[in-house]
Nucleic acid binder design. Structure first.
Lengths: 250, 250
DNA sequence: CGTCTCATTGATCCGCCTCAATAGCTGTGG
DNA sequence: CCACAGCTATTGAGGCGGATCAATGAGACG
């Protein structure tokens, strides 16, 4: 896996991703707590298994992960991708077991904060609590937006949606999105995210390339050529989307 | 719409639903706040429209509602059903606009608590805060469980899942679920929940009836005959499910 | 009794899945 | 250096699950 390379050849993006929270606005003790529990990970490791004990909150610092859930038949659905800056609490309603399986897609760093520490942090820092709430609302909005398309949308709509979601999350909801970015996913994984087979992901991407909407180079390096067309395909209201889906401001 | 009837002819269920929180455990001021903001609603009214202002939290006291989201083409996906005892905060990441459209399915009562009041309540009552967190985790678990099936499951699996979800939510996660219950939904609405056409919902239910898994009488009165078969169809682990999906204990 | 809504059933169609074969790329060992 | 294996993308062929269209019941209601 060329995860290292993946991140290495876009240094400006990486640095932006690695510190999505504005340093100046965050108390030093928060940063200290995060780095205290920080650990590095490789691509392809499993951090959490569905149903097993989980008493920590994950704050992603660098790299990609995904949280997934499976049917007994081996069918896997990716619930969400975890990008730098994301906070994920994978515990289920009982508060102590993991609601899904957490696996890394690239190498990177994550801060694994024990729940009671995290809770205490939130309690004593109101602005952090509010930030966490907004992050959570944004996460939920993405989940719902995708569910809408799983239920009612075509393959083309789902893929277009996912690309725009990645695009916007990667550049932190900036006003001028990059039109070129790399997704550290196989088509199989993208399919598991969108409820499609890898074969159909491939065909759908090919069709978009044929229609000059975008280009795809080696292993999911995407270049958007016609953003308006992509947005139209996705069925998104661009304004509303940016507001609802992305939260990176502390 | 015979919503009134719907609720009237199963009094024992209604009374259980109407007060899912154990009264004894809840401070009187909480109950007081809820009743202060309580209002009745009819079947078929719209309480909230996607994108419009929303500065309140809804605590369902009696009756059913649903929260939905639409594609411009008029395609609607029901995000969740709101049952008595549910707390729903429909605000999006910006904290002030509704993330979906909230409509009532039956008549009933709901407490519309202004957000700042709700927030204050949670802050001063730790156990209420924890309860709200568990409710939210359970809601999320249901969402994810359904998304897994939207992405990877057959129509039969989705319908079986939904029936079991309703069953367990209606009897509050009790150990001995009722095998007979009424769902105040049209097949169209159930389809909008599961990403299926109403026609296919009908066919799927008919097949289950033919296979002696269940019976359906007038307008969605369901009688489960073979719970094991239904659970098998749903792809659920029953134990794990009850724990993760339902939260009614305060 | 006419209307309206909803469930039911049949017929047909199509989007996506599955299976299968090929090709390209990467890493590995001889 | 080549040969090989492993993995992913690509493309074709064929099949199926569920959508769509359409017609008929069947209650509920005015």
């Amino acid at each position: 896996m060329s995860a290292q390379l993946l991140l290495k050849d876009r240094p400006q993006l990486v640095s932006k991703q690695a510190l999505p929270l504005k340093k100046a606005d965050i108390a030093k003790d928060f940063q200290a707590v995060l780095s205290q529990y920080a650990r590095a990970f490789d691509a392809g490791s499993t951090l959490l298994i569905e149903g097993e004990a989980c008493k920590a909150v994950f704050v992603q610092m660098d790299g990609w992960m995904h949280l997934s859930k499976s049917l007994e038949g081996g069918q896997t659905q990716i619930i969400e991708f975890v990008l730098p800056g994301d906070v994920i609490d994978a515990s289920s309603a009982d508060g102590s077991t993991a609601s899904g399986t957490l696996e890394t897609l690239t190498c990177g760093r994550v801060s694994v904060v024990p729940r009671h520490i995290w809770t205490a942090l939130l309690r004593e820092r109101v602005e952090l609590h509010r930030f966490a709430q907004r992050m959570d609302a944004a996460r939920q909005a993405r989940l719902v937006e995708r569910m809408l398309r799983l239920g009612k949308g075509s393959a083309e709509m789902r893929v277009a949606y996912a690309l725009i979601e990645f695009l916007m999350r990667l550049d932190g909801g900036g006003v001028r999105p990059q039109s070129r970015f790399r997704i550290p996913l196989t088509q199989q994984q993208l399919g598991d995210y969108l409820g499609l087979s890898s074969v159909h992901i491939c065909r759908t991407l090919r069709r978009m390339v044929r229609n000059d909407v975008l280009d795809v180079r080696d292993h999911m390096e995407v270049q958007i050529n016609d953003m308006d067309a992509l947005v139209a395909l996705s069925g998104l209201d661009r304004q509303a989307f940016r507001k609802a889906i992305v939260t990176r401001q502390f």
